[in-house]
């Protein structure tokens, strides 16, 4: 039983550290803009403040609107149980858990979108429409990308894949793995509504995706939504960091330490991307996402060829 709790530690790590990533992203952007920026722990104080407030609900909304934040957070927390951390297996791992991983996040999205439509506002409808549009394209990209990794390592669970990825895997299929990494990064940006797909800091409802969908949330509900978004950033980022760190072949506590460092670096990279790029036109986002699908597909075929 004790070992089970030890294996839960990575989950706790994610639950605690996820909001920090937002702080790092903001700080990076502030440095680029020559500002001092908000404290690194700003996201934590925001969450604490929201949890202390009351709530305002729209008269149009139903129980669906209230269920969505709860289901969203529960989904993303369940997903964290499947997530390995560099060199350490996840608390729960089984064949095909990568599919479960993606589909449980799909459940979260389903309810976020439905809750946005529950308010009856056309702005939130607009955000919902864009969300389903882009995620429909992001989904094949991540599925094919993960299947490519499964094919490269011969394992069918996230823990198995990431523990089997070693320097040799990179020697055999390096270019293909780099493509998967690129595809995963695009999906990561899209699913977490970052620039160039969506701008989390814009002040015009017309141009937003995720932020506009949650426009009517307040108080503890908003806290749940924001926290779930931070966790989603963590879990999808963890996939990228796991792939990127695999050639070092670390495990144990050193793996965990390096993983956390990797997550922070990823946050800095996201900050850099956001500072250097403009948000792309919504009409062009699908091209970016199908590029991700193409990258995964190419990577898959190359891996099949390399490991034949």
């Amino acid at each position: 039983m004790n070992t089970f709790f030890v294996s839960l530690l990575p989950v706790l790590l994610g639950l605690v550290l996820a909001p920090l990533l937002l702080g790092v992203i903001h700080r990076t952007k502030a440095v680029f803009a020559g500002r001092h920026g908000s404290p690194l722990l700003q996201a934590y104080s925001d969450l604490a403040k929201l949890l202390r407030k009351g709530a305002v609900y729209s008269r149009t909304t139903t129980w669906v609107f209230r269920a969505a934040p709860v289901i969203g957070l529960a989904s993303v927390v369940s997903v964290m149980v499947l997530l390995p951390i560099t060199g350490n297996s996840a608390p729960l791992s089984f064949v095909g858990d990568l599919i479960v991983f993606i589909y449980v996040l799909g459940l979260m999205r389903f309810f976020t979108v439905v809750a946005a439509l529950d308010t009856g506002s056309s702005f939130e409808g607009m955000g919902a429409s864009r969300e389903v549009h882009f995620s429909a394209l992001a989904e094949p990209a991540i599925v094919v990308g993960l299947v490519a990794l499964a094919s490269a390592t011969g394992f069918l669970s996230l823990s198995g894949i990431f523990s089997a990825m070693s320097p040799t895997t990179w020697v055999v299929a390096g270019p293909a793995l780099a493509l998967v990494l690129a595809a995963l990064f695009i999906v990561f940006l899209a699913e977490n509504s970052r620039i160039p797909i969506d701008d989390p800091n814009t002040h015009l409802e017309l141009t937003m995706i995720h932020e506009v969908m949650i426009l009517d949330y307040s108080g503890p509900d908003l806290a749940l939504v924001l926290y779930a978004a931070a966790l989603k950033l963590w879990v999808l980022g963890a996939l990228i960091v796991n792939v990127a760190l695999s050639p070092l072949g670390l495990n144990g506590i050193r793996g965990v330490g390096l993983f956390v460092a990797g997550m922070l670096v990823l946050a800095v990279i996201v900050g850099c991307v956001e500072s250097m790029m403009a948000r792309s036109s919504f009409l062009k986002v699908p091209r970016l996402l199908v590029t991700a699908i193409a990258l995964s597909g190419i990577a898959f075929m190359l891996i099949v060829r390399f490991t034949a």
Binding site: P286, V290, T291, I293, A294, G297, I298, M301, V304, R305
Partner: peptide
């Protein structure tokens, strides 16, 4: 359009292999 074009590209790739 660009999106169907890329899907064609992927199919072409699969077909080639």
């Amino acid at each position: 359009g660009h999106v169907p074009s890329v899907f064609f590209g992927i199919l072409a790739l699969l077909g080639s292999f």
